[in-house]
Design a binder for these strands. Structure first.
Lengths: 335, 335
DNA sequence: TTGTATGCGTTATCAC
DNA sequence: GTGATAACGCATACAA
């Protein structure tokens, strides 16, 4: 493997000069620069970033921790992170944690051992205290999911408000018996959306029944199972609020299996406005999050932290939006 | 930041000894080991991997290049890669290329500059020649998608055979006018599946019509648009083969919009057996790929290459499987 | 504008 | 079993 020394020797200059050419510094005579560049070309030299990283003590790499690659919600979020990262000369790498604390810690070691310059958490399994401890020494940001008590910057929507908004939509359509399919892993977003759901019920004078909330695994199967159980409620709902689109679709699948008409006999609302929501039949009413902006903002906060521009903790709240489609109100019938 | 020297000083030993403790070498007296470990604990020392990586000239990191995070096909593939990687002490990082050659080259620089030990391509945009050149000097493997001419190991299914299998299924159901929604980015898998499709037609004595193949963007919208065009064919198909599940679902959405009954008036078959295929209504007939094994095998090949165990190029072909559901043949009616 | 020399933090090769 | 020391490849302060 040819290194900077070889180049220097071949070009008849010092390694310092080669380094200057490599880093595009101005203080190199045009003739020298050209000569060095030719040698680099001829030798097929590729600079070894391990050396540079050690010397500079930075890697220009950002690690994004996802609970799961297959969650379609995150693709656009990551895109936002990547765009902002790349604009600033950072590479973005994505790793799966599967909500496994052990794995999360393993990846966190990449930060502690200086292999990445910063980490964005999208679904922390570490405790708030543990996160705070990490945040004291290293640049981290929480995106979309977060630990309330973690002393670290974060960006998300207002999940209480969003849960309220979804439930309110159902209530305004005349529903008074409303089920909810939430997450059994108790992520903070799920808990907050439940709060919003209960708030809307209370405000409308509806007495909450615990059988109306089914905690399930994220994904199609969770929505499917939760709905089957909801259908066995003592007081059977006429509407279902699922905390993700794919859970909502699992829910609708279960309803179809029972020959329950959507939305006539059961209205369904999801969350995230992922690609499938407009494609299902019936098209799914859902709450949209500004996914790209969530990612872009998170990366922005992180880079500020890395550069040391911003010391204090920031909490950014972005706006959500209700997207009304056929699964709660059949437009064709109204027209 | 405390380093190995600080630890050595505080423990009253040499850096060599600390390093031995860190790397779990046997030739350290139990008492010394304990003493050093206590100091490490007390000082909260974290070993800086930049130094180690430079010294060892390896990073134990593998880069996986995806065309797109949101493609649900890859989540299980990556899981296979991660599992095998982790078992062997390697971290797996995933990056998006968006089929952008510039970005792919940028990420490839991570390999050339020794920041990662190997790369797995899942959708190469580089030419076969360029890939061959890279493969000469660095460990790379192609997974699922590949360039025919690249002199590099690869693992995939037999896409010609899979395309044949899908089409054959439709023919056996009595269809003679069969449309195909393929990819406009001309990935090799798409081209091969088209070959299989044409082979099946020919074998059945059906004359292929060019209007029957619609090249579209990957994704829901592509399937939707392609189907709308297929419906305007001079000789309108009674069955559609889409090269991905999400294209097939976009296709079914378009059919529903036109009030065309599935599968009675139009049968639809997809590809990949992703989660949504069983959840849609009607449930989608599709070709399943052994996704986890594809990933696991690819990582296995790559690690062999990195270790220098296996010099010659390997082409592994894994088995696909036809999953019959309601979108091609309504079981309820048959029973 | 260029060269010399030092150090980034670690591992590994010698000695002892 | 342990210590001294030389790399690994690069960037940079300082000198020229």
């Amino acid at each position: 493997m040819t290194n900077i020394q070889d180049v220097a020797k071949a070009a008849g200059v010092s390694v310092a000069t080669v380094s200057r050419v490599l880093n595009d510094q101005s203080s190199v005579a045009p003739a020298t620069r050209e000569k060095v560049q030719k040698v680099i070309q001829d030798l097929g030299y590729e600079r070894n970033l391990l050396g540079r990283n050690l010397r500079r003590s930075e890697t220009k790499m950002i690690l994004v921790l996802l609970q799961n690659l297959s969650n379609p919600f995150y693709s656009k979020v990551v895109q936002g992170m990547e765009d902002v990262g790349h604009q600033n000369g950072y590479n973005v790498m994505v790793c799966n944690t599967d909500l496994d604390e052990q794995r999360e810690k393993l990846y966190l070691d990449l930060l502690k051992s200086k292999l990445v310059d910063g980490v964005i958490f999208t679904a922390p399994t570490l405790s708030g205290a543990a996160l705070s401890e990490v945040a004291k020494h290293y640049p981290i940001v929480q995106c979309s999911e977060y630990k309330e008590k973690a002393q670290a910057s974060r960006v998300s929507i207002d999940n209480v408000e969003a849960g309220y908004c979804a439930t309110r939509h159902l209530i305004e359509l005349g529903h008074t018996k409303i089920g909810m399919i939430s997450g059994k892993n108790r992520l903070p977003s799920a808990i907050d959306r439940e709060k919003g759901y209960k708030k809307a019920l209370k405000e409308a004078g509806i007495t909450f029944r615990s059988e109306w909330i089914q905690n399930e695994s994220y994904g199609f199967q969770g929505g499917f199972r939760g709905t089957k159980r909801l259908l066995k409620s003592e007081v059977k709902p006429t509407a279902i609020f699922a905390i993700s689109d794919i859970m909502a679709i699992g829910s609708m699948k279960a309803l179809k299996e029972e020959d329950i008409s959507i939305p006539r006999e059961m209205a369904v609302i999801g969350f995230d406005n992922t690609g499938i929501s407009g494609m299902y039949d019936p098209a799914l009413t859902t709450i949209a999050q500004p996914r790209y902006e969530l990612g872009a903002t998170a990366m922005d906060l992180l880079l500020q932290k890395i550069r040391g521009e911003e010391k204090k903790i920031q909490h950014k709240i972005l706006k959500h939006e209700l997207i009304i489609r056929d699964s709660t109100t059949r437009k064709k019938l109204l027209e």
